[in-house]
Nucleic acid binder design. Structure first.
Lengths: 196, 196
DNA sequence: GACAAAATCAGAACGAGTCTAGTTTTGCAA
DNA sequence: TTGCAAAACTAGACTCGTTCTGATTTTGTC
């Protein structure tokens, strides 16, 4: 496995990471050039000079995962946003700020990110996958909310809130003014869960 | 097209409907016997004595659609539930009652439905498709909500509510006490949209 | 240098879904 | 009744994502 800040990644891990990166890079390049649906995994594997089987060994979640972060990474940032929120900020405000700073809601992103976000936004398969990955964080976010609310186990109410929160970016992205829709949604959620 | 209460469906329409029904029946039977994932569309087509191409001509939305109603039908019942709600009942209460009487939340269903609901509930692909079909009703439900709220066009707020409402059955079905979770969700939504 | 684990490989196989090009059935009208 | 166009249906080839098999190479370690 790739050592996250361990003694020093050996040659094996470096090569593995390089292969993975080559696949991700090739995928992004081809998707941007020709559109997600017009690129086959075979072409991506060839561009990265690997076998198709290797591609799926690195990205078992499939073609979409080649350019989208998994729930692990997302959950990390989400956790940080909640746990390290400024003193006096409500959980829901922190979550609102977290999403407002991300992909589709922040216009001040470096071009490198921008093109990627636009690609996802205009590709239904990718957007659906992104939503799924967020929603997969529901149980963990519910735990986080329980922690913030000072209870041991998340109950129905917190699971419902977690789901609504994670559903919101998807929903808001379909509206003409994405940022306004996001704000509107969080305003209502704060009414429904006044203590969070 | 199948005439819905027109003069009298001719032979052609009757045969077409029969083929469609044969496909749906064969699919349900095989899914129940061996599980959704262990049945191929080829087997279904053979059991219904049709070609695979015919199967997809009748169900272009794919394998899942063989046993799940499309948004058209769902929307009809949803519309009725909202428009014909008893005097003095809020829209959200009507929607709550509507879902509480359906599939996963009502234990008093005839066996014929019960087995189907259980199949959907225990098959991720089917459950995901069912959610999608509900969520596809979002724009229409937002219109309905606008109508009930006495405004011309649904704004962000109503689209958000529509989405949360349609997301709720899926969400609640994953909780240990589905009915309780459904009620909990609607209770919060009523706080967030007190006028509906 | 030997050996096991991990990474990679080519290619076959599978299932969903699309496409093509042709055949049969049906409704309708001359 | 016949003629004809539209609709329904068909077999089979094809694409694409994904999995499987079984082998080969690369790497870390002893």
């Amino acid at each position: 496995m790739v050592t996250t800040r361990g003694p020093a990644p050996g040659r094996r891990d470096r090569k593995k990471a390089a292969t993975r990166q080559a696949l991700a890079d090739a995928a992004l390049k081809l998707f941007l050039e020709r559109g997600y649906d017009n690129v086959t995994v075979k072409e991506i594997a060839e561009a990265a000079d690997t076998a198709i089987a290797t591609l799926f060994a690195h990205f078992p979640a499939g073609k979409e995962a080649l350019i989208l972060a998994d729930s692990g990474e997302r959950l990390e940032s989400l956790t940080a946003a909640v746990r390290e929120r400024p003193e006096g900020t409500s959980v829901l405000d922190a979550l609102h700020a977290f999403f407002a700073a991300r992909g589709p809601f922040n216009d001040n992103l470096p071009d490198e990110y921008r093109v990627r976000v636009d690609l996802v936004l205009r590709t239904p398969a990718l957007w659906a996958y992104a939503r799924k990955v967020w929603v997969d964080c529901q149980p963990s976010l519910a735990e986080l909310l329980a922690e913030a609310a000072g209870v041991d186990e998340p109950d129905d109410s917190l699971h419902v809130l977690a789901r609504y929160v994670l559903e919101t970016p998807d929903l808001a992205s379909y509206r003409p003014d994405r940022r306004a829709a996001l704000a509107e949604a969080f305003a209502h959620l704060k009414q429904g869960w006044p203590h969070l």
